[in-house]
Design a protein around this nucleic acid. Structure first.
Lengths: 146, 146
DNA sequence: CCTAGTGCCTGTAGTGACTACAGGGTCAAG
DNA sequence: CTTGACCCTGTAGTCACTACAGGCACTAGG
């Protein structure tokens, strides 16, 4: 590891807040490029890697899938992206987020409803259980993953 | 398949709106009980199975994990649940949901912000890309799965 | 009776985005 | 020269399914 701005995967992990295993995983699936290797076979990273990993991390926090990020990054890599394309992706993603929020709100209401009907007694009966057995499907409910 | 209220997995699937493969999966992991079998080895279900499967479906729609549902169902099966226990689980779950909504709202704001700064031009520069590269971590952002 | 078309069976593998080992090699300090 | 921290590869596990492959069972039509 030279004097210049080169560092190991552990350092990159710490700087980026991304798990070591995850960094290697990103490399395997082609989200992060294969880095140079030291004589001993250790991965050697530089500033560009940090930058890119930050990009991925932010993107993930914003709910982009790794596939979407791979798409964005390939645009960046090829210098072929335009503001229009990126904007379209963002707006689409925003729509998804708003849908998810709406789903969760409906879900919140249903749960709060159930909880309010519950006496919290030690008795072996519970309106929540009944509700789950009797209740109709929350219509329009789509993939709400916990 | 007798005249009484017995039916195949296909019928159960249709009645419950749960995929056949998923029903078999639920059986494998112990969320649904092993049903009786016909002479040919076909699964034979009755009304109780429909009821239970509905329970699981509703629970899933409300965002409970299969593990949580297994817990609830074992309480129901053993007739050992009390309203207090169920209420506690529900309230805990409700807290998770509200946290998720808050996360998504923060995310929505960040995305909307980025989108609004974007000109949507054909130019090969984009504030969104820049933002992703430069932006700080959304603090407190936890598991926001898409 | 034969055949085609369903429906059902088991078991395995794939998804996404990681995480957690097992079983080793490397390196710096004491 | 040994200890411990770090790194390597590769595989398997997580969750909640979904999708297939390869094979019986059953029913209706010819």
């Amino acid at each position: 590891m030279k004097q210049t701005d080169e560092f190991s995967i552990g350092v990159l992990s710490e700087r980026s807040g991304v798990n070591i295993e995850t960094i290697r995983y990103y490399e395997k699936i082609g989200v992060m490029p294969k880095p140079a290797r030291s004589a001993a076979g250790y991965r050697v990273y530089g500033h560009d890697h940090t930058r890119r990993l930050h990009f991925v991390r932010r993107g993930r926090e914003l709910g982009f899938s790794l596939n979407e990020l791979r798409g964005l990054l390939s645009l960046v890599d090829g210098h072929t992206y335009t503001c229009r394309v990126v904007h379209a992706l963002t707006v689409e993603h925003l729509r998804d987020i708003r849908q998810k929020i709406a789903d969760l709100r409906r879900l919140e209401r249903a749960m709060a409803d159930m909880a309010s009907k519950c006496t919290g007694d030690q008795v072996p009966e519970c309106p929540i259980i009944d509700a789950l057995f009797e209740m109709r499907s929350i219509k329009g409910s789509r993939s709400v993953r916990s």
